[in-house]
Nucleic acid binder design. Structure first.
Length: 274
DNA sequence: AAAGCACCCTGTACGC
DNA sequence: TGCGTACAGGGTGCTT
């Protein structure tokens, strides 16, 4: 599932192959994939636009055009691939962009949860997002201020994109493990030292995952723009490891459901109480 | 503000 | 072997 590190890897890959290219046309295979404007207007307005910028905000890929911006969320199963001309069609391609060099940018998405927007200003889509956890100016002081305005349990908070942009289920669980914090711990129960550990854990885990070009859990999982898998799955400590021994203390990893979402943790290394 | 849940989808895992 | 069903997952929107 693409989270910040995967989306960052995709954005970097796209930057190399899309910058300066002109989109000669677009074909939509599943109309609901287009968030806005309506499908026909989308196809008409994107044709002839040149790519001048590729960035990321939270889990969104932002493709700046000479007029307007494509804003793309991969959700669970979305993939962006740049393919050579003549590549055989993929059954899960939802949006196809033809490029002026003969290649294609393909948005593939088996689950159809992903969305592609064409807007004048990316913040029309991303306005509600919290800060970027890897931004240089996102320091411990900022993080403490964010925490002070929140209540409730840590796991749902880390998944809340309005709190912090970019964490998903995998890296939220990994960050809580790295910080030694139980996912059901509440924000207001954190000591200053625990706040710092959580801050450091989020930054360290995300940074390492970006360096590893993301997590690919299985052959159907995430890949980068060239179709290559990430490598962070080799460093996963708790996510998807229920019943397996903790890498630190060998206790069996537990899996519980919090707010309708799975949470994986070591009951020994991540005590419920501080 | 937080919590719980249905919804959007489909491949896959599982029970019989 | 083959069928039906539950489930996973991110985000939104609704209700409590």
């Amino acid at each position: 599932m693409p989270e910040l590190p995967e989306v960052e890897t995709v954005a970097r890959g796209l930057r190399g192959s899309l910058l300066g290219r002109t989109i000669t046309g677009a074909t939509v295979g599943w109309s609901r994939t287009i968030g806005r404007p309506a499908m026909d207007e989308f196809m008409a307005r994107v044709a002839g636009r040149r790519v001048i910028l590729v960035t990321r905000r939270g889990k969104y890929v932002l493709i700046g055009l000479d007029r307007g911006h494509l804003v793309i969320h991969l959700k669970m199963s979305g993939r962006l691939q740049v393919t050579p001309a003549g590549e055989p069609p993929d059954p899960y391609v939802r949006v196809l962009f033809d490029l002026d060099d003969g290649r294609q940018l393909r948005f593939q998405d088996t689950r159809k949860f992903g969305r592609v927007y064409l807007v004048d200003d990316p913040t029309e889509v991303t306005a509600g997002l919290g800060p970027e956890p890897l931004a240089e100016d996102f320091d411990l002081h900022c993080f403490r201020q964010l925490l002070d305005r929140r209540r409730g349990r840590l796991k749902p908070l880390l998944l809340n994109q309005k709190f912090l942009a970019g964490l998903g289920n995998i890296y939220a669980d990994e960050a809580l493990f790295a910080a030694g914090l139980h996912p059901l711990r509440t924000v207001d129960s954190l000591t200053p030292d625990e706040q710092m550990r959580l801050y450091e854990a989020i930054r360290t885990i995300l940074g390492q995952a970006v360096d590893s070009r993301g997590t690919t859990l299985d052959d159907k999982g995430y890949t980068d723009v060239a179709g290559q898998a990430g490598a962070y799955q080799d460093q996963i400590a708790v996510y998807g490891r229920a019943g397996e021994p903790c890498l630190r203390c060998h206790s069996p990893i537990e899996r519980i459901v919090i707010g309708g979402r799975s949470a994986h943790f070591c009951p020994c290394c991540q005590g419920k109480r501080s």
